[in-house]
């Protein structure tokens, strides 16, 4: 596979390390009342869609960016690649 890195252009996927669903960015609030349930759902449950999937890849043998890649799990077609840091900021993550 080839991942079209937003800063570097197309790079072979073998430079990257895969983590999983991009929802792993949305780490729950540790002080929530049902924090344990929330963390359970966050860490263990997956939509696992057959189709478009937003997922995290780490450019380990490259620029060390975490990326959010939008890829179809039926065809492997990639329709979007973003820096995960930008995505995380947009989703309100900060400090």
């Amino acid at each position: 596979m080839i991942i079209n890195h937003p800063l570097l252009g197309p790079r072979d996927a073998s430079e990257f390390t895969y983590l999983g669903d991009a929802s792993l960015i949305d780490r729950p609030d540790w002080q929530a009342e049902d924090a344990q349930q929330q963390f359970h759902d966050y860490l263990y449950l997956r939509d696992n869609p057959a189709g478009e999937h937003r997922e995290l890849w780490f450019h380990e043998q490259g620029d060390r960016s975490w990326l959010v890649v939008t890829r179809n799990t039926l065809t492997h077609e990639i329709t979007g690649v973003e820096l995960a840091r930008d995505v995380a900021m947009q989703r309100g993550r900060g400090r």
């Binding site: 999983g20 669903d21 759902d41 263990y44 449950l45 997956r46 939509d47 696992n48 869609p49 057959a50 799990t73």
Partner: peptide, 16 residues
């Protein structure tokens, strides 16, 4: 499993 159980509204601790 993910595809079929989604029809029952379930999310699973499984990836394909």
């Amino acid at each position: 499993s993910g595809r079929v159980m989604a029809k029952a509204g379930m999310r699973l601790p499984i990836e394909s």
